[in-house]
Write a protein that binds this DNA or RNA. Structure first.
Lengths: 343, 343
DNA sequence: GCAAAATCTTTACACGGGTAAATAATTAAT
DNA sequence: ATTAATTATTTACCCGTGTAAAGATTTTGC
């Protein structure tokens, strides 16, 4: 316990009998001092509870132990989970993650990078908006700070990228849907804010072509991040007008699918895989909620933890090697099919 | 644009023709300098993009412009929304919010307060776990930093508190349920992590007594934050065993209700208010998702923005008056009934 | 036990900006 | 225009830590 308060490192040096430069080294990296001194310091640390001033510490250090994490929208459970997973991976490596949400607003993304700059982060993990991101801001940032992209890519920026192989995952679920019932239609936003949406559409078209089946794409108008709302209102119209030529709808993501489920419910349509059902609905992402929808949602689970781990590992490698990785390398992880009762 | 990089305030003083102490004043509060000088500085700021070093700034300042925000779990959409609302209110007042999640872990809450201490925040807004919170840690923290509690209270800590009047809100929904159908049973967790749960139970008992009706409380075993899962698995058992004496279930919160809806679906029970339905289910909180459940969930909406605004206002008042408000004042806001089709 | 290597102490200066006091310049009031 | 009040400049020192250099001490290897 603390016997009298220590104001600064100088005072702590006095009471601990260790010189200030040595203490400075210790707090930077406890392994950098001899074991016997380390023990002496730790003992003193028990007695007097002193902690170096973060601001003074970071003032002169070239690089802090801060890692910035920027996601498009923390209110979206998907990004919440990604953010959390990455955060944990950083803590495990002894860094201090700073998680920021761009709140669905691309210009906030640039602002977030700007704020992070002021914190002199050792590196940054960014889940960008994609095409909506301010490319030149991100590119400029990447010149100054080690940057790794996750979930979505921004073309033409020399930066490692880790995400899900949408081509594989969509092919997988299309295959499943074809084998287990009728041909899937594809439901998506007309102007998706996420570039993965485009890849998924392309993958759908590609899959249908491989099967020699006709592709049917239906696009919902709507802006913003209220995907469930858009999925429901436009889905309601489309279902009511019976525009879908088959009874299976593959939604570009789970949030749209959740809206579509709600629309189907409102119209009294029975959704499900079994006999006696009017409609099958499937999604993509394994949204934390999709286990609890009625019926539970058949979907694709992304391998969050693999993405996070690899991204963090690559970032730390870039930080430690002090080289900027401008290879625009791309690492994709497979999605897993999660069969539930909605399709 | 920047013509040559400015390294520090000294250099910026040179190129702008303003003395460093005046610049220091300006960056602390731009209104504190004469209009003509302010304009000269802003003009120079356009030309040379200089920003003071945050670390050096905060090192000596008694109080930073940082506001800590701690919520129990950002993955819970309810707290996500509270956090976001409070965050916005802080930004509007010119402060820098730092949003931290305790990830469902009370000891993480103490850790978060600890990390915040190092950042010398001007004040902290805490949505605590309640009884699970480490009371002495919070109390100690409140001695050093202006603190305002939201959502949940911790007894015996002299701190303003803002939350929803559970007594009013439960009375309201019980009244509605009684008038619109059969008497509600109450479904909750046996060992709730949130103190509001206890207030809600008490309010339910109280309401039933006022109506002269028999109260029926059913408690689900289970730990952790997987409320939907607990609601579903225990709800499934209870529904299957037909333990509920009436066909109306009021759940302690929306997440449990969502689980219960899922359980009902699994058993083929028709949930809803209309005729031909087997069961009515209602919740509390107006979870962002409850609009999209099947059927949409009847619930109580908390007045987030009023809570956030008042809490922030009170905090800033405490900060500016430099007095610690130890009044343990309590301000409760009314919940609003949201009638949807589940009950 | 001795030299070489590793580690620590001492000293000294740097970092970038807060802030106080005395002085100078500007603005407002008469 | 003169004086008083306000605001800016100059000077100087402070904050708490990083870090480099030189010398002292301890540890290691043989």
């Amino acid at each position: 316990m603390s016997r009298g308060k220590i104001r600064n490192m100088e005072e702590f040096a006095k009471v601990s009998g260790i010189s200030r430069p040595t203490l400075s080294k210790f707090f930077h990296d406890s392994e950098s001092v001899r074991k016997s001194t380390r023990e002496r310091i730790e003992k003193a640390l028990d007695e007097y509870d002193y902690r170096p001033n973060v601001y003074a510490m970071n003032q002169n250090r070239r690089t802090t132990r801060n890692i910035g994490i920027v996601v498009p929208n923390l209110a979206d459970p998907f990004f919440n989970e990604i953010g959390r997973t990455v955060e944990l991976a950083c803590i495990k490596e002894g860094y201090s993650p700073i998680l920021l949400s761009s709140h669905g607003n691309p210009s906030q993304e640039s602002d977030n990078l700007d704020s992070l700059r002021a914190l002199k982060p050792a590196g940054v993990l960014l889940a960008p908006f994609g095409r909506a991101s301010n490319k030149s801001d991100v590119a400029k940032f990447a010149k100054d700070v080690p940057l790794v992209l996750i979930d979505a890519k921004i073309d033409g920026i020399g930066t490692p990228y880790f995400g899900t192989d949408n081509n594989q995952s969509i092919r997988l679920i299309v295959e499943y849907l074809c084998r287990s019932g009728s041909t899937p239609c594809f439901f998506e936003m007309k102007t998706p804010s996420n570039p993965n949406a485009n890849k998924r559409r392309a993958a759908y078209l590609n899959s249908m072509e491989r099967h020699g089946l006709p592709a049917h794409i239906f696009q919902a108008e709507g802006d913003g991040w209220d995907f469930e709302d858009i999925g429901r209102s436009r889905g309601h119209e489309m279902l009511a007008e019976q525009v879908f030529p088959t009874n299976t709808i593959l939604c570009s993501n789970d949030r749209l699918a959740i809206g579509m489920l709600s629309a189907a419910y409102g119209l009294g349509l029975r959704v499900g895989h079994g006999s006696g059902c009017d409609l099958r609905i499937a999604g993509h992402d394994d949204h934390p909620f999709s286990r609890f929808t009625c019926p539970p949602l058949t979907t694709i689970a992304q391998d969050y933890s693999a993405i996070a781990q690899q991204a963090v590992k690559t970032l730390f490698h870039a930080i430690e090697s002090e080289k900027r990785d401008t290879s625009q390398s791309e690492t994709l992880f497979e999605g897993k099919l999660v069969m539930r009762s909605s399709a």
